[in-house]
Simulated scan of single mutants.
Amino acid sequence: MKTRLFAFAALGIALTACTNDNEVTDNDPVAAVINAEISDAVATRASGTAWAERDEIGISESRFGYANVLYRWENGKFTPAGTIIFFQDDDPTTFSAYYPYDADGGTLTATTDATAQQNQPAIDFLYATGATASTHNPEVNFTDDTDAGGTDCSFHHCMSQITLTFEAGSGVSFTAIKPVSYTLSGLTLTGSFDTETGIAKADEDAQTANLTMGLGGELTSSVILFPQTRASIGLTVVYNDNEYNATLSVPDGALKSGNNYTWTVSVRNKDLSIGSAEISDWNPVSGGIVDADL
């Protein structure tokens, strides 16, 4: 069967051109139907627990030559936004996908500076692979079926995340005054994401830099960073016109892909107490207690 590429808006054919038992009829072309979920309800996309309207992913497979095909989340499902992927024989084929979509695909470069943190979905790179489908079973399920003895083909986070939660410690009240901002120091803020392999990595040649985030009255803040080797990270918190300094010890000496490193920062009368660090999925990481003095 020849490759057939059609503009979705002009195509008058149902995406599932088959009967209820998924059998092809009248030799009609069969289009791939895309189902996708983000790994683990706890491991959410930066902007929430579900896909947002008009989220875009790039889908590829090698047998038929489809590469970086744009599908868009609209009305509760992914639909093609141009080219439609059609099966060209009866054999199963394997698909991969990434988020967020880029027209060029390949190796994308990005920064995770303070400006980029204001639009975290744009740097929350996700990747999925291993989903198979065919003319007789055209649904491409980027889902986790391990509970049913299947395979985890869902989207996984490729970046690393740090989440800090600030609490009032001994001799401190947040009723009138709260921490204003914090700075993480000694980080590599630039890097790349390979849409074909799902590998995100920091730029090894870049100079380390500081990342300052305003809190705006909130007591929990998260940042997304490129995975990188980092045994420790400097932390400075501005509270009541004073700077409190501490060092975050990173478990295993690295910010790893898919991990959310969470610390509770207790602001005390003259120092900060850094509680345990946990990994959540975005995965919790445990660390020791660190005190920070003025």
Rank of each mutant, 00 (worst) to 15 (best):
D89L: 06
I85Q: 04
A116K: 03
Q117F: 02
T146C: 11
T165I: 04
T112Q: 07
T135Y: 00
A81S: 13
G150T: 08
D144I: 12
P92W: 05
T132Y: 00
T94W: 01
G150E: 06
N137S: 06
C158H: 07
H157V: 00
D144F: 07
F78Y: 09
A81K: 12
N141T: 13
Y98Q: 12
A133H: 10
G76W: 00
T135K: 15
F166L: 15
D152W: 14
T115P: 00
D152L: 12
A114L: 05
A168Q: 11
A116Q: 03
Y99H: 09
N119D: 13
I84Y: 03
F87P: 00
P100W: 10
T151P: 04
V140F: 09
I84F: 01
T132D: 08
G82C: 00
Q117P: 03
G150K: 12
A97V: 07
T129V: 06
D147G: 15
E167H: 06
Q161I: 05
D147H: 08
T79Q: 04
I84A: 06
I162R: 09
T83C: 05
T146A: 07
A116T: 12
D145P: 00
A103D: 14
G106A: 12
F86L: 08
I162G: 04
V140L: 12
E167N: 15
L108G: 08
G130K: 09
I85E: 11
H156G: 08
A103Y: 03
G82W: 01
D102N: 15
T132H: 01
C153H: 14
G105Q: 13
T83P: 00
H157M: 04
P80E: 11
Q120N: 07
T112I: 01
A168Y: 13
T132M: 04
N141S: 15
P100V: 04
P100I: 01
T151V: 15
T112G: 07
D145F: 13
I162H: 05
T93G: 10
I85S: 05
M159G: 06
S160I: 01
T151W: 01
T109E: 14
L126F: 08
T93H: 07
E167V: 15
A133N: 10
P138F: 02
K77S: 14
C158P: 00
F87Q: 04
F95W: 09
A97K: 04
D102H: 12
A131N: 06
K77N: 11
S160R: 01
A103P: 02
D145I: 02
T93C: 14
K77V: 11
T94H: 02
D145R: 15
E167M: 07
Q88N: 11
Y99P: 01
H136Q: 13
F86G: 01
T109H: 12
I123D: 07
Q120C: 04
S160N: 02
D124F: 00
G106W: 10
T109Y: 07
F95R: 08
T94C: 02
I123R: 11
T93A: 15
T165M: 02
C158G: 02
G149L: 12
T163R: 14
